[in-house]
Amino acid sequence: MSEPRPLGSSALVRLVAGREIATRLRDKNFIISSIVIIVVLIGVMAFQVVVGSGSDESRVGVVGDASELGPAIQAQGEAVGVDVTIVPLEDEAAARQAVDDEDVDGALVGGTGAAPELLVKDRDSTMEAVVNGAVAGVAVAQQLADAGVDLTAVPEVAVSSLESGDDDGERVVVALIGVGVLYGLLILFGQFVAQGVVEEKSSRVVELLLATMRPWQLLAGKILGLGVLGLAQIVVIGVIGVVGALAFDVVDVPGDLISTVVSVVLWFVLGYAFYASVFAVAASLVSRQEDLGTVLTPTTLVLVAGFFVGLQAAGDPDSTLASVTSYVPGLSPLVMPVRQAAGEAAAWEVALAVVLMLVAIALVVRLGGRVYAGALLRTSGKTKLREALRAERA
């Protein structure tokens, strides 16, 4: 009877990856954190809807025929960003009663006649300007028409904006939310990788695993398995975010906004590959969960710094700090998406940042793999970096 053929490297890596995915899907902390992220994301969008639906709406009563003044007042309000609702009223008494009962914010009495009057309970300069502008515009139009001026011959001014401000603003908001989610997931999955390494070392499971596979295969399987899980999670969050934005009417989501979400997802892949390797290597230097904080703190601080620089880049994406850090491996996944969304990053800049990130990942994996192999079987206390490299060479 022939002996079974040993598994190849790819099969062993897939085996470890499948084990990591299955373990985390049964982990309550992972499930709870995923639900919390989604609930917070939906809550942020709902909050924007509540905030945005308050002070920019006005109800204006008009006595008599509102067919002429109503559209003019609404158009004037739209020009200054106020959503005006016209309420037809029968007479001045009804107008005063409606204002007193706060059924309307103001009531126009007298129309375009000699002495139009706006009745209000509390002075509102914005509403007063909207109504005055509308009444003046209608009055001027009537006088020109009475004088025989053909208003249809007046050319309409075409407006061409040199800045795509609104679209850029929406893309930056989407990128900021995405970077916040990306930051949280990098911390979360980096911790998962680190905790898994320490658990295997402290329980001596790693000794059994290394009897059938090499250290780099175990490291690659861990990173791949949790990476697939993290990628699936951020894609689901991105889809829910886009659907939620459409449902809540928070932003108009054209192709460029969807491309911003895709950009954040792709940067997650690069950021995860970098940080997961660093977290795994750092965790291999200790043997107890209590010691994880000391070895993970430097890397966590880099992530925190990248997150705050990304926030700063939203306000000034062309600043020297944002420009420089968008090329720095480890910081670029949290800064470059914001600069891309703001339209301040050229294609060659993005390509350069990606290349630098790939080079950094290759170096971290190569050096980290050696440290990981040298420190993995050392289960007593902390292992220094030099000792791990010396043990790997031996």
Rank of each mutant, 00 (worst) to 15 (best):
E78T: 10
S319P: 10
G169V: 05
I361G: 02
L292I: 03
S202H: 08
A139E: 13
S58V: 12
G64H: 12
E387Q: 08
V193N: 01
R123E: 12
V236H: 01
A194S: 13
V197E: 06
D316M: 13
E392L: 02
G374F: 11
V179F: 08
G81M: 07
A145C: 00
G293E: 09
S164Y: 08
E349Q: 15
A22W: 09
V371P: 07
G70W: 05
V44H: 08
E170R: 11
F248S: 12
E117W: 00
V80H: 05
L367Y: 15
A11G: 05
L182A: 04
K121V: 04
A305C: 02
M127V: 12
L363M: 15
V304S: 01
V135S: 10
L303Y: 08
G255L: 14
A232R: 01
L352F: 04
L301D: 06
V286M: 10
Q289E: 15
Q312Y: 15
L266Y: 01
D167C: 00
G70E: 11
V355H: 05
L119D: 03
A136I: 06
F307L: 12
L385P: 02
V159F: 04
V80R: 07
V265T: 10
S125A: 15
L231Y: 07
A245L: 15
L182R: 01
A341K: 07
G381L: 08
M357N: 06
A79I: 00
V140E: 11
S277Y: 03
A134P: 03
S161K: 09
A11H: 03
D166W: 07
S10G: 10
G315D: 06
F248W: 11
V49W: 14
A66H: 13
S164W: 05
K201T: 02
E200S: 02
R96Q: 09
L377P: 11
A360N: 09
P155K: 07
G111F: 13
G374A: 09
F192D: 00
D256H: 03
L176N: 01
G169F: 09
M213F: 13
T152E: 13
R378I: 14
K382P: 09
V109T: 05
P298Y: 11
G343F: 07
G330P: 01
V82M: 10
L385I: 01
P71G: 02
D56R: 09
L25Q: 05
E170G: 12
W348Q: 12
G184A: 10
V36K: 03
